[in-house]
Design a protein around this nucleic acid. Sequence first.
DNA 1: CTGTTAGCGCTTTCAC
DNA 2: GTGAAAGCGCTAACAG
Lengths: 337, 337
Amino acid sequence: MTSQKAPTMKDVAREAGVALGTVSKVINGIPVSERNRLKVEQAIQTLNYEVNTYARGLKTQKSNLVALIIPNTTNPFFASFADHIEASLYKKGLRLLLCCADGIPQKEIDYLNMAANNKVDGIIALTYSDIGKYIPPSLPIVVFDRFFENRVIPRVASDNFSGGCLAIEKLLEFGCRHPIYIRFHSVFPGESDKRKDGYLYACEKYGLEPDFIDEVDCDDRLRIMKEFLEKHKRPDGSLTFDGVFSHTDYHGYMFYRLLLSEGYRVPEDVQIIGFDGIRKFGNDDDDLFISSICQPVELLAEKCVEILTAADGTPAPCLTLLPAQYRYGGTTRDGKR
Amino acid sequence: MTSQKAPTMKDVAREAGVALGTVSKVINGIPVSERNRLKVEQAIQTLNYEVNTYARGLKTQKSNLVALIIPNTTNPFFASFADHIEASLYKKGLRLLLCCADGIPQKEIDYLNMAANNKVDGIIALTYSDIGKYIPPSLPIVVFDRFFENRVIPRVASDNFSGGCLAIEKLLEFGCRHPIYIRFHSVFPGESDKRKDGYLYACEKYGLEPDFIDEVDCDDRLRIMKEFLEKHKRPDGSLTFDGVFSHTDYHGYMFYRLLLSEGYRVPEDVQIIGFDGIRKFGNDDDDLFISSICQPVELLAEKCVEILTAADGTPAPCLTLLPAQYRYGGTTRDGKR
DNA sequence: CTGTTAGCGCTTTCAC
DNA sequence: GTGAAAGCGCTAACAG
């Protein structure tokens, strides 16, 4: 892995017949006499010169690199988030260092250490392990969804509370009488917890009796869902609920498949609304897994980048909430389209 | 975006009471007295020291960064590939610069220029535009699937020919008599073209009449599929084919949905096998979209990294083909499970 | 082995 | 304006 010797600034200076510093000024847009600027630009052309990133980084301590720490890219939500982060950074001339932490705390810490040591200019983190205390104290960072106690860190998230509320309102609008809520959550608190708060609030507001699965995430999800289902079957086999708001599309889709396999019809017997708005192949508008409260992934990503790259003086907002929107995905009774 | 001053090698030397060079030796694994090594390691611990990448890069012209150029991360296959590339690089102490080219040639060229510009030690490219002539002449590179004419570049791919063949053999094994083939392909040639060759070869071998959709990829896929379907309906509504080998899971899944919407049963009336082995949520073993010839993504990624990072002397293989495997995903008659 | 030192290519003073 | 020169933190070559 060796790279060929590239021309240096010195070569350009010699070629142009000016001093080293003058070349540097031209490159960095610092005023220089018209005559010299042209000579330098000419020399740069001739030699096909490009700035050496390491030398510049060594001097300026800037790399134009931003680390994105996410669990993985295989989960469609993370994948989409990463994709939009990349696009936003690219627009600003920044590059993306992808760090998939896989939920391995050591790997997260490794990446954080690396980030702290002059390798990146900032961090965008979407993580579900407890790395708060490893976050370098003075590196710009924006976190998605999570909250760390040791330091005031700008957070970006969807308006999960309103989203949770909206899910129930939509289910009611489409004729549900008894919506339940399903969640398998991380042990670490985050903004997405408010989806449940939204559900509970909506229950209160519309006089519904709350009923839900709310367990720590585990390998036993399917068994837990099945048990829940059994407990909610009437003697005639019909269900005591007719709507499901799932904390994520993923689990909502699991529940959807379970219902189908037990002979229930969706959306006729039970309507389902998930959360996230993930798409099967990531591109079309018509390939939601289930009807969903869709996170505005593109806007969320842009907002993260915007806050991270805001001028040093600008105070970053502690929390930025963006609205999530309902979209039809086949498991609700507003079909047609 | 300012970073706090990190401890330097000088600080470590002072803390450990040894010379700068000694610290450098310890870090680079060059023999040093046991006593000094311990002192230095201790000091590194205490100061939480990490090597400054720019300084090292300036000296060595290495960055431990590898650029991955892919169209996006939202397509599940690319996402999975990126995920495994990241993991493989991480194991070798390398970091991943993610470049999503979105099929925008200018963006690909930008990234290639950057890569050439001392920023990365190597490139792994999975791309469908014609960037052959922009590839920096002396930077290590490995391409997935594609072939560029201007330069001998190591290629890694699945054994698409055998995979195509296998798809037909499986369909026959499960009782198909008339398997067709569906493809919407890029205008650029690549290894995956051999899936069709495999199909044609299998037809020849097993005495089948080839029949297929083979179009340049476009927005009109659904219309083309519908027309094809119409042409293959017998007067009684039954179909003249009973098996589908789709060039990708994506299009296979599209065709699957089309068949269902037209009232055909899968796998009873028509069996479908795709190619890629992409998973709905990227993690479980049971969430293929359709039965598929699965690319060994993890191995492919590892192989790319292995070839890219092979010692300078080692001649890289021009082409490395890894076997793809059939896996049940609900659209074939080997169900149960 | 160990310590000293000369740069890697660039930015950024600082005199001129 | 301009050019000379001092490092940024590290590696590697060298003398001890």
